[in-house]
Design a protein around this nucleic acid. Structure first.
Lengths: 150, 150
DNA sequence: TATTGTTATACTCTATAACTATA
DNA sequence: TATAGTTATAGAGTATAACAATA
């Protein structure tokens, strides 16, 4: 399967297919390589914590749009997270229809703990690569990110 | 955020973190960039079709294990797919407890159509990159795949 | 007796519709 | 009148438990 992908990626036409497959596989692997013990938060709940970590804070509607979820669903998720002490809710300063959600210290800690745990597995795998392969990835990471934001 | 990631990836310690973030972002983007019309199959159902496309054919238990789902759930998913004409079920030749699932022609066509649609978006984004950036990705794809299988 | 798959049933997550409060 | 969020209710999807068939 490796050689096949390599050959595929040589042509411009095949690069998209090869890259998509590789990214999907690695992403799936990274998602499944997580501590089965400390899974108190559902994937959807954790996704919102990660989102808040990136955005700082956000209104319920914005969270719903980002997660491609309907507002009532996000209300429920946020309520669970608030009960668990992971996030706080407060009314928007100027527009009091909106409800602004922000990470609590506990929520931030949960995000960082999960992040460290996932980095741990990947870092170990990276140490098994050759220096040349690591260099390839070092240069590829920003390009992958560029694609993600394109 | 781009420069930050680039700097982070320069050190071995930061590479894991930078790569994980980039792969996760691109994967999310690739997943959301899909035709909203022709979504008759649920994500779980489509995942099984993709799995069968890779494995050729598989027993219900094997599909359940690969998708990290309990056997009764996979039975249900497979039943739906069979009703839709996407897969076939037949008893295993030597061990008649097992039920072997395989893609039908329609199922294979559905997988390939979805695949082409997803490639389309990524191929367009790749054309917007510089030749050097595409070369970086060409070399990175097999390494990403190696990590996924590590 | 152990294993594979299925059926029966309950729970979680998300969606749509109706409602409240604010703009 | 339009918008942001919530509440109420219903529909997928998945899980556990119990069962049937085969090894």
């Amino acid at each position: 399967m490796g050689p096949t992908l390599e050959k595929l990626a040589r042509t411009d036409a095949g690069l998209a297919s090869a890259l998509r497959v590789s990214v999907a596989r690695l992403s799936r692997r990274l998602r499944t390589e997580r501590d089965p013990d400390s899974d108190q938060l559902s994937p959807g709940q954790f996704a919102v914590l990660g989102l808040l970590d990136r955005l700082g804070e956000a209104a319920v509607g914005e969270l719903a749009a980002q997660e491609r979820v309907q507002p009532p669903s996000m209300t429920r998720t946020v309520s669970c997270l608030e009960e668990g002490g992971y996030v706080t809710r407060r009314p928007h300063e100027s527009d009091r229809r909106q409800v602004v959600v922000a990470l609590s210290d506990q929520g931030r800690a949960a995000v960082e703990a999960e992040r460290r745990r996932r980095d741990h597995w990947l870092a170990a795998r990276l140490r098994e690569l050759t220096p040349e392969e690591r260099q390839v990835l070092r240069r590829a990471a920003p390009v992958l990110d560029k694609l993600a934001h394109a």
